[in-house]
Design a binder for these strands. Structure first.
Length: 730
RNA sequence: CUGCCUGUAGCUCAGCUGGAUAGAGCAAGGGACUUCUAAUCCCUGGGUCAGAGGUUCGAAUCCUCUCAGGCAGGCCA
């Protein structure tokens, strides 16, 4: 509603400017201090020079005219919410005031947000974790930013499709396969000891793997303590170290990689594979099958981890299917026919298919102006496959016969979510996450891809390949689609050296930081070195700390109610807020003390304010004083609303504007900052203005009205937009 | 070498398309629980917005240069 009023006033100012023949500078802003007013126009200042008049004089002429127009407004029009008195302040600002009681009444009568559907489908791709080890806090930043974007876009009315791309044929998965099959047995046994203790040989470990897979034990939810990703986390660094000491091992990687690209043969069972693996000379089919198991098991662990944070997906496009469904082949044809790529005949790139970039202005000054899409051995680079995937996302891949070039699909898992910020539970429920398949589309009821706009949530280090993808779309003649391909880039999560040492102490190992790394403010996480804070481990620690805090607040002898749920909500709140509150272009130097803080500028602070608001209404209800939104609105209509209460109410009404700005700039620190300001304003009022024990019915009614609006707003921002659950109690 | 990002209080960070007196939290000191939960609130101190020019009625915000730090420029992703 605030937006409607603002637009109406801008139109009115525009008319007044036009009748005078003055430049149309009708944009309104919000004054920094509420006592000055609610909406402000600064246009008199730039006009002053052109008109050769003092800005205050210009302001006063307009103020008088506008005041007269506003005084004539009929009840019910947007402009009728504005006071006819228009003030000129400072050097020439025009300050407008809202009729506070009337605005508050209107906000309570109806949902103050405009939730009308708008726009065409938007695709958001996020998470994209290599399915070869556990998720770490860097992946959390990606997933939380992507998820908050999705939530904000949906609030604004856009249809959104969430994709989590799975690189199931890459080097990283291959390395874990190598770890299981070719790493010296002693190393493998050591790597698995922490997660699956008591296994003494490769044969036993592989047998355990197969048994767990067949029982669904590698999967969520049969085993809620899904731990296969933890095992891989320990195994993967040992493989990279083994390569360093045994370069001939890299041949194994190549072999597995080749097998992964070819894919597993149909009809092969893991039992048969196990028998073959035992021989020590597995076929490519067996390698591919094991790779598939590794990727899927890790993926299920990742879905579970993100599900704990309330993050879900619509579809899981697999890189293998980009090749096997012919998406890449189609994209390659398009690129070749357009002359966007060519095969090098000589030089260091001889035999490769390359895309020249020297012509594109974005790539000015590059030493290497060509990007290789097909290697000399005929395999496709990640960027090549990403181009095909991007074209599909934009709905630009068509077969010769004019039909869409598309993946096949099948259901991957069912899921449910009890509330907007509740954990996502897999295994049953009404919702389905699909995965792509190599077979043609057997599920005609689902349709994915073909978005009008596409957001790729990927860290800043991948800016260059993202630009290449975008340039390929442009070079194919899809200039508008290229404009609508947005790289949502964010800086990495790193660890302070102190945090690394704390990890070392808790794990009883040494990462061997170099002296120059010790001097740096932060150290990059590295899956290859095993340096990183695992998402699950952090969440567990947060839950434990939250439990301690809850227990510490209880009177002696009192038993905590729903301890697990409350601790989980607080842990998720702390984690999601920390990820969302920081500007995306800033390295997040992870520190345990910061991450575990529950006071001050944290998620739990916001949750606490929300819990207190709910408690007020609980108590009012018990006392028979709860009233209703409608009745409060009516009563408040003609009341004077003091500055402090109005500040909170007005702030609540600005939420939609804040969400739009956050989405436009992809800066969710704007939204977290807004939420914190509201919570601070509320907390202050909470101490000064009792509701249940108010001095008069009138005072109670006014406070109740403002707090009701705050409560609704806070639930929207926390649960629906930021995905932060509000616990029953704290 | 080239390009991008970052530099704001002792520390960690906000500051929206230029707008009125640059804000939080932590840390330090003081105060408020027989009251709708003290994970809270109030008060105090703390700033060369990296530096220098420029544009503008007005600059932390835009432009140029300098300094410092980070990332990228793979037949890895």
């Amino acid at each position: 509603m605030l937006r409607t009023i603002q637009q109406a006033l801008e139109a009115l100012i525009g008319q007044e400017l036009a009748t005078r023949g003055w430049e149309n500078l009708a944009r309104l802003e919000v004054p920094p201090h509420r006592q000055w007013g609610d909406l402000a126009w600064a246009g008199a200042l730039p006009l002053a020079k052109a008109l050769r008049q003092p800005p205050r004089l210009i302001g006063e002429q307009l103020a008088q005219a506008l005041g007269a127009r506003l005084a004539q407004e009929q009840e019910g029009s947007a402009l009728a919410f504005l006071h006819p008195q228009v003030r000129v302040d400072g050097p020439g600002f025009l300050n407008f005031r809202l009729k506070r009681g009337a605005v508050l009444a209107e906000a309570l009568r109806a949902d103050p947000w405009q939730r009308a559907p708008r726009g065409e489908k938007i695709i958001v791709e996020h998470t994209n974790i290599n399915p070869n080890k556990a998720a770490h806090i860097g992946h959390l930043r990606n997933a939380v930013l992507g998820d908050v974007l999705v939530r904000c876009l949906r609030f604004l009315g856009y249809p959104v499709e969430v994709q989590n791309y799975i690189d199931d044929t890459g080097v990283q998965v291959a390395d874990v396969v190598v770890g299981f099959l070719f790493l010296p047995e002693e190393e493998l046994v050591q790597a698995t000891a922490a997660t699956w203790p008591g296994l003494a040989s490769r044969q036993q470990i592989l047998a355990e793997l197969v048994q767990r897979w067949e029982q669904g034990g590698l999967l969520v939810p049969a085993n809620p303590e899904a731990d296969f990703d933890d095992l891989c986390w320990d195994l993967y660094p040992r493989v990279t170290r083994w390569y360093e000491e045994n370069p001939q091992g890299l041949a194994r990687r190549g072999q597995v990689l080749h097998a992964l690209e070819a894919g597993p043969p149909t009809g092969i069972t893991l039992r048969q594979v196990l028998a073959e693996l035992a021989t020590g000379h597995p076929s490519d089919g067996a390698l591919a099958c094991l790779g598939m198991v590794v990727a899927e098991a890790n993926l299920r662990c990742h879905l579970h981890t993100m599900g704990e944070l309330g993050i879900a997906y619509d579809v899981l496009p697999h890189e293998s299917d980009v090749l096997r469904r012919g998406l890449w082949q189609r994209a390659f044809e398009l690129l070749r026919r357009c002359g966007c790529i060519h095969q090098e005949k000589e030089g260091k790139n001889a035999g490769c298919w390359v895309m020249p970039l020297a012509e594109a202005p974005e790539f000015a000054g590059l030493a290497e102006a060509d990007k290789i899409l097909v290697r000399s051995n005929g395999t496709v680079t990640y960027t090549g496959k990403d181009i095909a995937y991007q074209l599909w996302k934009l709905g630009l891949l068509w077969d010769e016969d004019g039909s869409r070039c598309d993946f096949g699909y099948k259901p991957f898992a069912r899921w449910e979510q009890a509330g907007p910020a509740a954990p996502v539970r897999y295994g049953q429920g009404p919702r389905v996450v699909y995965r792509t398949t190599a077979e043609p589309h057997p599920y005609t009821e689902v349709s994915f891809g073909g978005g009008r706009r596409v957001f790729n949530v990927i860290d800043v280090r991948q800016t260059y390949p993202q630009k290449v993808v975008r340039e390929a779309v442009r070079a194919l003649g899809f200039a508008e689609a290229a404009e609508n391909s947005v790289h949502f880039s964010y800086e990495m999560v790193a660890l302070t050296p102190k945090a690394v040492h704390q990890l070392e102490a808790s794990l009883g190992i040494s990462f061997g930081l170099l002296p120059e790394e010790e001097e740096k403010p932060f150290v990059e996480m590295s899956g290859r070195r095993g340096i990183g804070v695992k998402a699950n481990a952090l969440l567990r620690t947060l839950r434990e700390e939250a439990e301690k805090a809850i227990r510490g607040r209880l009177a002696s002898g009192q038993k905590p109610q729903a301890l697990q749920e409350r601790a989980h909500a607080i842990a998720v709140g702390a984690l999601r807020y920390q990820m969302a509150r920081q500007g995306r272009n800033r390295v997040l130097a992870f520190d345990f003390a910061d991450a575990l803080a529950f006071e001050g500028d944290t998620g739990p602070y916001l949750q606490y304010a929300a819990v207190r608001t709910r408690k007020i209404f609980d108590k009012l209800h018990q006392a028979g004083l709860a009233g209703s939104a409608e009745a409060d609105g009516q009563a408040v209509e003609g009341m004077e609303v003091p500055d402090d209460l109005w500040e909170l109410a007005f702030g609540c009404l600005r939420t939609q504007e804040v969400v739009e700005k956050a989405v436009a700039s992809l800066e969710f620190s704007l939204l977290t900052g807004h939420a914190r300001e509201l919570a601070q304003a509320f907390s202050n009022l909470y101490h000064r203005y009792p509701v249940l024990h108010a001095e008069s019915d009138q005072a109670r009614c006014l406070r109740r009205a403002v707090f009701r609006l705050f409560s609704r707003t806070q639930e929207l921002i926390l649960e629906e937009l930021l995905g932060i659950p509000i616990p029953e109690e704290m």
